[in-house]
Amino acid sequence: MTSYLDLRDINKTFDIDGSTYVALGRVNLHIRRGEFITIIGHSGCGKSTLLNLIAGLIKPTSGSITLEEQPVSEPGPDRGMVFQHHGLLPWLSIYDNVYQAVAAVFPGRSKAEKAEDVQRVIRMVGLWEHRNKKPGQISDGMKQRTAVARAFAIHPKVLLLDEPFGALDALIKPTLHDALVELWGSDGQSETVFMVTHDIDEAIYLSDRIVVMTNGPQATIGEIVDVALPRPRDKRGILHMPEYIDLKDHLLYLLSTSQWSASQIDKAS
């Protein structure tokens, strides 16, 4: 019996200038449907590699990835993606960035249906008045919101987020978290979300489970931590909950000790 999104014995090596670099070793992860799962770890620990594997942008050296028991071998619209630096096409307006994705994924739909869907997601991220602007004319936060809207617009089974808010300042992050949570719950059925981050607070606020990676080379899953905080979560409210404080403590401990020698941390930073 496989789980909804299933990663089995994933190994990934890269050939760099003739020498082999083992990025990921024996990664096993079983994700339930509708789960919000976050991968956290130091830079260079293979978080993004894992995400690109699920996206199908790269192939594992060995091991298998299945989504609803179908093997993942190439990119597809069942896995929507929000890229690290928004990945919007700068020559298209906000509206067209979303519309092109929808039109590419659902070529059979009528124009009106496509337009309706595009309007719905752009309104949900609060950018309808800005729909005719180009990415170069809006703030970083708005760009990332557009990217989130685009990923949701194609109704993916799994939403992949590659450090989506990493480049944003701390003041604007909470509004984006809320936009994400709102969209996540808006579809009737919750999407399964797989997010890469290095922000512990963000991980706790959003996730059902947090996967802590060990450092590379040959990075693997160090520990999987359950986030038992009730939903809907109140960003400021949870800060003072004992569970939150314990969780954060534990994550900080995991990220700072045992598995990581000082030299490895030097290399990573």
Binding site: A55, P75, P77, G80, M81, F83, G87, Q100, A101, I154
Partner: peptide, 12 residues
Amino acid sequence: TCKNVAMVFRFS
């Protein structure tokens, strides 16, 4: 990134 966007969203 632009190429990846086209791949993920299955641009013809």
